[in-house]
Structure formats: structure tokens, C-alpha cells
């Protein structure tokens, strides 16, 4: 006992006069056991909600490689797993592919603001094509109703619900992923779960995203969406034509966004939003092909073409233009 206060400095406590250590000790041991038991019981009860997580992850998914590091055989196995999962959940065998970018293709989008009437058909076609969650509703395209005479987005209205569109005195500005050539979202991702493909599409590996949402904070176009809940897609709405980097059903806790309908466009079709547009405001194509419609528009409408937030230096592949 005497060596316990060997260093000077601390206040010297008085020695205890009466030591009832034994009874105290046994009491502590008893209550310690009871506390430990109560603690384990409380912990078990407290973690009960985790039982719902049975299908959250598996060793197979955890050990799955990053998209860019998978061999073709590994990718085949993964595509098969995805198909099995979709079948189990929706009772329909999907056609899941991993379409690669085509050589000599760089996709570009152009949107004619003089034509857009703000009907939001593109928004819904996109949801249907890309298997977005219906509850909670998740949409890639946001149409902003703008008063004529300004491009100041803070003056816009997002939740407009008039009897009919277009409304007098307004124009409509649909915004979706701008597929930047210098994408801030890609730069910030801590795990390289999102990157730019050679054909200009910025994609996400949904099986690699950790859900930190840093890319959402970085995006100057409000283009990225997060699955705050397990996505729910009505069975009858499921689009069975799927691709790994595109519209296969997503899991809870990951980010997604417009990918120019990669499952369509890499197979030579137009994006769903373009096909549905009733006024032909949307144009899409290969900018490396001088004969394409998109090349023609960018060449001929040059004076009336602009990109959103040019000062950000993001170099979008999404152009807005006006008729003369």
C-alpha cells in the first residue's frame, strides 16, 4: 500500500479506517453478473431490427470485384446472380447485360428550350425505362418552370401543377445529369464507384457505392439521387431489358443517376426521354460523327446554344439551345 502514492503531486487520500471489502466484493460480483446478463439481453433486444436485414448483403456480394477489375467470366456470374435476384423478387427472368461502349462514339444531348412545354412526360418515361423506385418516388429529370426573361434558377418553380401546360409567360428547363467531361462527382468519390466511360457517360457501380453521398454534394446540377429506402418497383412496371451499369434494380443505400439510358443507347437506340417527347425538343447522338443530327445542331445553332453553369468548368455534354 505504501508505494501507491510514490509520486509527489497528487492529493494524498487518507487511509480507510474500516474495510468492508469482502461483502462489497461479493456484492459487486453478484451485481456484475446481473448487469452483464441484463446488458446482453438489452443488446439483443436493441439489435432486433437487424433481423430484417437478412438479404442486405452476402459474402458473394462483399467479395465481388470492382466493375473495372472483373474478368468476363466473373461478370457473367454476377449478371446471373442479378438475374436470379430479380426473378426471386419480381417473378420475372430479366435480360441483364453488360454493354460496352462503342468505338468512335461520344454521346451528346441537346435540348430545345423553345420547344419544351413542361409536360414532364420525359420524367415518367425515364422512371419506367430505368426501373426507378416508385415508393419513395425517385426521378432523374427535374423540370424547372422559369419566368420568361431570366436564367436565374432561384426564380424557378419545381412543383408546378397547372391544369395544362405550357403556361403563358413561362418557359421550361428540364435538367438531368449533364454527363460532364470534367465531372466533379467522379473526382470526390472516395472509392472510385463512379467514373466516366469512353463514350462520355458517367456511370455508377451500384455494387461498389458506399453511400457517402459526397457526389451529391459535389454535383452542381442536382443530378444524383440516393436510395434512402429499399426501392419498390411495381411488378407490372419492371423493365426486363437491363444492364449492369444502367437500369438493373438498385439496392438501398446507394446513389444512382441518369446514364443516357445506357441499356438502350449502347444498343443503338435513343434514350427513353427523347422518344417520348411530344414536341421533339430532345436530340441525342454521336458527336464524333459529323453527319449526325446532334453534330448538325451544335454546328448550326451555335449562337443560340449554351451549357448550364459554364463558370463551373464542368464541360457538360448536355446542351440547351433556342430556335432562331
Amino acid at each position: 500500500m505504501s508505494d501507491m502514492h510514490s509520486t509527489p503531486g497528487p492529493r494524498e487520500p487518507a487511509r480507510p479506517g474500516n474495510d468492508n471489502g469482502m461483502s462489497r466484493r461479493s456484492f459487486l460480483r453478484l451485481s456484475g453478473g446481473a448487469t452483464a446478463f441484463a446488458g446482453v439481453a438489452a443488446l439483443t433486444a436493441g439489435l432486433a431490427p437487424l433481423r430484417e436485414l437478412a438479404s442486405f448483403t452476402s459474402l458473394e456480394k462483399f467479395l465481388q470485384k470492382h466493375y473495372k477489375e472483373m474478368t468476363p467470366r466473373e461478370m457473367e456470374r454476377v449478371l446471373d446472380r442479378i438475374a436470379r435476384e430479380v426473378e426471386r423478387q419480381y417473378g420475372m427472368r430479366p435480360h441483364v447485360r453488360d454493354l460496352k461502349p462503342m468505338d468512335g462514339v461520344e454521346f451528346v444531348y441537346a435540348l430545345n428550350l423553345s420547344r419544351c412545354i413542361g409536360c414532364r412526360r420525359c420524367v415518367h418515361a425515364c422512371v419506367a425505362e430505368n426501373n426507378q423506385s416508385g415508393d419513395p418516388a425517385l426521378e432523374y429529370i427535374r423540370v424547372v418552370k422559369m419566368p420568361q426573361g431570366t436564367f436565374d434558377l432561384t426564380k424557378g418553380e419545381h412543383n408546378y401543377e397547372p391544369e395544362s401546360v405550357p403556361e403563358e409567360g413561362y418557359f421550361y428547363m428540364p435538367v438531368q445529369c449533364q454527363q460532364c467531361a470534367n465531372p466533379p462527382c467522379v473526382k470526390v468519390c472516395p472509392v472510385r464507384a463512379t467514373w466516366q466511360e469512353p463514350d462520355g457517360i458517367t456511370v455508377i457501380d451500384y455494387d461498389w457505392c458506399i453511400g457517402c453521398r459526397y457526389c451529391q454534394a459535389a454535383c452542381p446540377y442536382f443530378a444524383r439521387r440516393f436510395n434512402f429506402k429499399k426501392p419498390v418497383i411495381p411488378k407490372e412496371r419492371l423493365n426486363p431489358n437491363m444492364s449492369y451499369l444502367g437500369n438493373r434494380p438498385r439496392e438501398v443505400g446507394v446513389v444512382e443517376k441518369c446514364h443516357f439510358c445506357i441499356q438502350r443507347t449502347r444498343a443503338g437506340r435513343y434514350p427513353a426521354c427523347l422518344e417520348v417527347c411530344p414536341v421533339g425538343a430532345r436530340k441525342f447522338g454521336n458527336v464524333l460523327d459529323p453527319e449526325s443530327e446532334i453534330s448538325y445542331i451544335l454546328r448550326e445553332k451555335r449562337v443560340f446554344t449554351f451549357i448550364l453553369k459554364e463558370e463551373q468548368g464542368t464541360l457538360p455534354r448536355f446542351f440547351y439551345y433556342l430556335d432562331k
Binding site: K187, C189, V191, R192, W208, C209, I210, G211, R213
Partner: peptide, 21 residues
Amino acid sequence: GRPDRAAYMVPGFGKLNFPGS
């Protein structure tokens, strides 16, 4: 959103985006 994938930040096993991010 996916704490089960936090290990993807470990260099070697995952793909830490260093020094980019």
C-alpha cells in the same frame, strides 16, 4: 448508406480514391 462496404476504402482490398477525393 452502405456501412457493409466501408472496407472498399481499404487500399489493396478496395479502391481508395487517393489522392483524388
